[in-house]
Amino acid sequence: MPAKQINDLHSLMQKSGLWRASSIECECKQGFSSGYPALDQHLPGAGWPLDGVTELLHEQQGIGELQLLSPALARLSREQTRHILMISPPYIPYPPALHALGIDLASILVVQANKNKDMLWALEQALTSKSCSAVLCWPKKINDKQIRRLQLASKDSNTWNILFRPTHAIRQASPAELRIHLSPAKYASLNFHRSIHLKILKRRGGWESDELKIDFDDHLNQQTPDFSELIIPTTDNVDYETKTQRRPMALPAFPAIAG
């Protein structure tokens, strides 16, 4: 290569704003740490994008798809006064487990919409209302145009929209900010050690990633946010008088388990 061209290339490299396909460092916003350093280093902005649609594609319930989000949701629930909305979860999001993961239950709202149309409507309302920090949704059916609308709405209102979708949606094009395929780890042992495999299918300023393995129980690898400093409500510091009057509610109808 002639010296002049090499020089040109060097001067070009000096300029900021040049994106190299080999790196995911781009001029994107600082992400919200996922709580798993192994994952953070592969995410643009070193964390979850708190504005935009994140798609999690998985085949089976119960492979740790919510647990993957839990450190981020726990931090969000304590740092922001906005709600975390769950629209049409397949089962009851179980409060004792949420509490155990450090999620502030007061910030969680669950919406039951039986029809897919109502679900998408509720999702868009939640995104445009600007009153939610994160909206988790389990849509039965959604197309790319609808995701595009959600992407715009969540950008506009600074809301993190997480969509849980079946794996066959991989073939569909999607305007989502981030798409991750989740698969269960192969276990050999009988112990309760949990991990999950994930593959980033789409990210801003980066190619599809290799398969990553996230260990939920590996405390050395994982920087769990320190919740000891935060006020975890115990019976001692709760002012019982501030509790508002409660209305007994009927148990919501959840769809029967499929499969």
Binding site: A97, A100, L101, T234, K243, T244, R246, R247
Partner: peptide, 27 residues
């Protein structure tokens, strides 16, 4: 061990220390 409440009202109970699933089947 859980109950649905109206928005804004918070009730505290003692959570179990044992491992609990994130999703509970209604039945």
């Amino acid at each position: 061990a859980w109950k649905p409440v109206q928005q804004g009202s918070l009730e505290l109970g003692d959570a179990e220390d044992n491992h609990r699933p994130l999703f509970l089947l209604p039945q």
